[in-house]
């Protein structure tokens, strides 16, 4: 099995990468971890004429806490999150979520930023970015801009990125000690794409939910933030019955996608279960 032929470039700094993206336009494709792109190329579902390999751009390889954010450089591999990268609920939550990102060897190569750029509807990191209100920094020769996650994902494999733009960093707001995260995913085998998943972050005080963030993924063309369900949770007691009711409400809030892996009805049931479980985990 061979991909279609392409020209290969391996810039060592961001400006050189941007110049290549500018020169090659829509024919140029960024190669980061390559764990989705190369598979698609092997099947010739993707046939980029030019690959711009960013793996040797050292300035993109960092992970640091600064100004109330976790700043994730674009070359940060999934595996970097296996152990908590920051004290507190955010590091714990990311280490919990990463267990579900494909398989171990894929996590050694694949990058957080690459997942967002690829925008698979079943991507755990796209859901994480959506629920945690991530900011995505992108650059081109034309300049730099920051895109909120709510405006970044446009649909299946489609984002707000222009062909000449490169993601340089993702910023995740830190969660102080009052927050707790919960994540639940269903797939038929370990490491398979999610048929449904839910991510919840709760602030519970004296058994009462004071703040909630909630989203679901794998069930539509992009991750979905459930603002109405979040609002309905605030002020309620953190109990199983409330979580089950929230799950039921979540399952009615969307028209789940259907494919050979699961019918829409089945996904609807999964949403209810995943949301209830993620909330229960966040409240535990």
């Amino acid at each position: 099995m061979k991909p279609a032929a392409f020209d290969y470039h391996r810039p060592t700094d961001v400006v050189a990468a941007l110049a290549l993206l500018d020169a090659h336009g829509a024919d140029g494709k960024v190669l980061a971890g390559g764990q989705s792109l190369v598979a698609a190329m092997n099947f010739r579902l993707a046939r980029p004429g030019v690959l711009i390999d960013v793996n040797r751009i050292a300035e993109l390889d960092y992970l640091r806490v600064e100004g109330g954010h976790l700043r994730v450089g674009a070359l940060t591999r999934h595996a970097a999150f296996h152990r908590p990268v920051v004290d507190g609920p955010l590091g714990t939550l990311l280490s919990r979520v990463v267990e579900h990102v494909a398989h171990y060897p894929i996590r050694q190569r694949g990058t957080f930023a690459g997942s967002l750029a690829h925008a698979d509807p079943a991507s755990e990191w796209c859901l994480t970015a959506t629920v945690l209100d991530a900011e995505i920094s992108v650059r081109s020769l034309r300049g730099a801009r920051s895109i909120p996650a709510s405006a970044f994902f446009k649909g299946t494999f489609t984002t707000a990125l222009e062909p000449d733009e490169l993601i340089t960093e993702i910023r995740l707001p830190l969660l102080d000690a009052g927050w707790r995260g919960g994540f639940s995913e269903f797939s038929r085998r370990a490491g398979d794409f999610a048929l449904a998943m839910a991510l919840a972050v709760l602030r519970v005080e004296s058994g009462v939910i004071r703040a909630a963030r909630l989203g679901i993924g794998g069930v539509a063309d992009r991750a979905i933030r459930l603002h109405a369900v979040e609002a309905a949770l605030v002020g309620r007691e953190a109990t199983e019955s409330i979580f089950r009711a929230a799950g039921a409400e979540a399952s009615r809030a969307v028209e789940p996608s259907a494919d050979i892996h699961a019918s829409s009805e089945y996904r609807r049931d999964l949403i209810a279960a995943m949301v209830a479980r993620a909330l229960a985990e966040a409240a535990a």
Partner: peptide
């Protein structure tokens, strides 16, 4: 499988196990 699913091609690159079907030799 040649698309990263089966793992038969797993090798170690710089101390990490990776799928060698999802990496180009030039990389």
């Amino acid at each position: 499988c040649e698309h990263g699913v089966c793992g038969a091609c797993t090798v170690i690159v710089d101390g990490r196990p990776v799928r060698s079907c999802l990496m180009f030799a030039v990389q």
